[in-house]
Design a protein around this nucleic acid. Structure first.
Ligand SMILES: NC(=O)c1ccc[n+]([C@@H]2O[C@H](COP(=O)([O-])OP(=O)(O)OC[C@H]3O[C@@H](n4cnc5c(N)ncnc54)[C@H](O)[C@@H]3O)[C@@H](O)[C@H]2O)c1
Ligand SMILES: NC(=O)c1ccc[n+]([C@@H]2O[C@H](COP(=O)([O-])OP(=O)(O)OC[C@H]3O[C@@H](n4cnc5c(N)ncnc54)[C@H](O)[C@@H]3O)[C@@H](O)[C@H]2O)c1
Lengths: 234, 234
DNA sequence: GTAAATTTGTTATTTCAATAACAAGTATTA
DNA sequence: TAATACTTGTTATTGAAATAACAAATTTAC
C-alpha cells in the first residue's frame, strides 16, 4: 500500500523560473494530513457502526467542513484508492489509516500530574484506542500515589524512569502545575519517551529527537475571542 | 497605533508573471499571528513580574522556539515599534496586545457541560484574564444545577437563551457528552454567541457568522504518536 | 447504444505562513 | 572619530497547505 508511490513532483520558483522538483513524500505525511486522518477515522468508525459500507469523498468532506478535493488528496497521499462511483470502502480505509497512525504493537502513554485535568484526560482516553492507551500516571502527592483511576495506576514521580522503561512507554502527557513543568519534561526525556504533549501554559525545551506538541486552552480561547469579535471581517 | 499602516504589498503569480498586489491587512491578523500574540503576552507578563522592562526579539523567540524574524514580523503587523538596540518595552507591548486581543469591555464566556472536563476548565480559567472570564455554566443534571465552582454558577440548560442574553455572553465552550453536542451548539448559536470552542470529538455545524474552533485531545495525541514513531524522518 | 451525470486520482495554481536578506539606525570599541 | 557589532523594520524569497482544474472511468438515463 505504502510503497507503490515513493516519489512526487512539485514546482519550485527558482530565480523567478519555475522548476520541476522531485520530492519524496511517502517518508512522512504533512502535519495537517495526519490530523485529518485521525478525524476521518473517528467518524468512519461511527459510519461503520451504522452499517454503512462505502462513503464518497464529498460525504467525508461534509462531515468535516472541508472540500472533497482535500479528502481525496489526503487519501491519495496514503496510497489508498476507492472505487469509481462507489466511493471508499469504509473498513478498508479505517484499516489503512490504522496502519499509518498506529504502531503495530501499539504505543503506551504516561500522564504526569493526576489533578483535575489529568484525571479528566485519563477518563476520556479510557478504552478509546486499542493501540494508544494510558498505561501509567505519575504524581507527587501522597494522597494520590497508589490510587487507580479507570484502571490507570498512579505511581510516585520518583519511579518515572523505572516504570517508563519497564512498560516501554513512548509518549508523555504533561498536566502538572507550571512550577513542575520543566522538571517533568526533563524526566520524561531522560526516561526515553519520543513524544510529549503538554497542556500547560509553560513553554518547554526538548532535544531534537523528541516530538513536542504544546496546547494551551487560554490561547485557544483568546483566538476564538479575537475572531469572534472580528467575525464580520472574515 | 493601528492606523498608520493600512496597506501592504505582496506578490501574486498570475499567469506565470509576478504581479505586485496591494492588500489590506490591518483588518484582520493572520491566524497564526493571533495565536502567537496570545503566547507572547502570557510570557511577557511573567517577564514583567520578574522586573524586566525591555526585551529583544531574539529573547521572545527563544522562549517560544521560533525565529526572531517571526517575532518582529508579528510585532510589525500590530503596528508596534521597539527601540533600536534596546528592544521592546514590555509593558507597552503587553498593553498593545491587550488592545488587539481583548475587547474594550471584555467578552464573557459560557461553558456548557459541567462534568469532569468542564469543571477542570472552569478552575483553570478562574481569575486568569480580566477581559475574558467564564460568567456562567450550564448543565442538565439536577445534581449540578444551582451549584457553584470557583464563583461560576451552574444554570439549568433550559435557561441558556435567557442567561446568555442577560449577561451578554459572546463565547461558548462545549464540554457535554457527544449525544448532546448538536443541540448544545444550536442553543448557543440561537442565543447569539459569536464564537464556539468545542472540546468534544463530534463535528459541529455553525452558520457563517459564528467562529468555530474544534479541538480533540485524541487527535492531538494520535498526531504526537505518529510523529514520535517517525521522529528520525523529521 | 449513446449521451449525460458522477466520481475518482492527479497535476496545476493559488493562498497562506515562515524564513531570508538587507537597509538604516544606534551603541560600543579602538 | 572611525570602524564594528548589534538590533530593528521591511521587503523578497521560499516553503507548506489548500483549492482549482481536468482527464479517465463508470454508472444511469434516455
Ligand atoms: N484544569 C484545566 O482544565 C487545565 C486546562 C489547561 C491547562 N491546565 C494546566 O494543567 C496543569 C494541571 O492543571 P490541573 O488543573 O489539573 O491542576 P491540579 O493542581 O489539579 O493538578 C496538578 C497535579 O500535579 C501534581 N503534581 C504537582 N507537582 C508534581 C510533580 N513535580 N510531579 C508530579 N506531579 C506533580 C499534583 O499533586 C496534582 O495532582 C497546570 O499546569 C494547568 O495550568 C489545566
Ligand atoms: N474528560 C476529558 O478530559 C475530555 C477530553 C476531551 C474531550 N472530552 C469531551 O468532553 C465532553 C465532556 O467530557 P466529560 O469527561 O466532562 O464528561 P462528563 O460526563 O463528566 O460531563 C458531561 C456533563 O455534561 C452534562 N450534560 C449532559 N447532557 C447535557 C445537555 N444536554 N446539556 C447540558 N449539559 C449536559 C452532564 O450532566 C455532565 O455534567 C465529552 O464530549 C468528551 O468526549 C472530555
Amino acid at each position: 500500500m505504502y510503497d507503490n508511490k515513493n516519489e512526487y513532483f512539485c514546482f519550485s520558483t527558482n530565480r523567478n523560473r519555475l522548476t520541476k522538483v522531485k520530492i519524496n513524500t511517502m517518508n512522512i505525511l504533512p502535519d495537517k494530513t495526519v490530523e485529518r486522518l485521525s478525524q476521518y477515522r473517528r467518524n468512519l468508525l461511527i459510519c461503520d457502526g451504522k452499517g454503512k459500507t462505502h462513503i464518497f469523498s464529498h460525504e467525508i468532506a461534509n462531515i468535516h467542513h472541508i472540500t472533497p478535493v482535500q479528502v481525496r488528496r489526503d487519501i491519495m497521499l496514503i496510497g489508498y484508492t476507492g472505487t469509481l462511483r462507489k466511493g471508499y470502502n469504509i473498513l478498508e480505509l479505517i484499516a489503512l489509516i490504522g496502519e499509518i497512525l498506529d504502531k503495530e504493537d501499539g504505543q503506551r502513554v504516561a500522564i504526569v500530574g493526576a489533578g483535575n485535568l489529568g484525571r479528566a484526560i485519563i477518563q476520556y482516553f479510557h478504552n478509546r484506542r486499542d493501540k494508544l492507551s494510558i498505561s501509567a500516571a505519575f504524581d507527587s502527592s501522597p494522597d494520590k500515589i497508589g490510587q487507580e483511576y479507570d484502571g490507570v495506576k498512579i505511581y510516585p514521580i520518583e519511579d518515572i524512569d523505572k516504570i517508563v522503561k519497564e512498560k516501554n512507554i513512548t509518549i508523555g502527557i504533561i498536566s502538572v502545575p507550571v512550577v513542575a513543568v520543566k522538571a517533568t519534561a526533563s524526566a520524561l526525556v531522560e526516561a526515553g519517551v519520543k513524544g510529549i504533549l503538554s497542556y500547560t501554559p509553560r513553554p518547554i525545551d526538548v532535544p531534537e529527537n523528541v516530538y513536542l506538541e504544546e496546547y494551551d486552552m487560554i490561547t485557544s480561547l483568546e483566538k476564538v475571542a479575537y475572531f469572534a469579535k472580528n467575525i464580520e471581517k472574515i
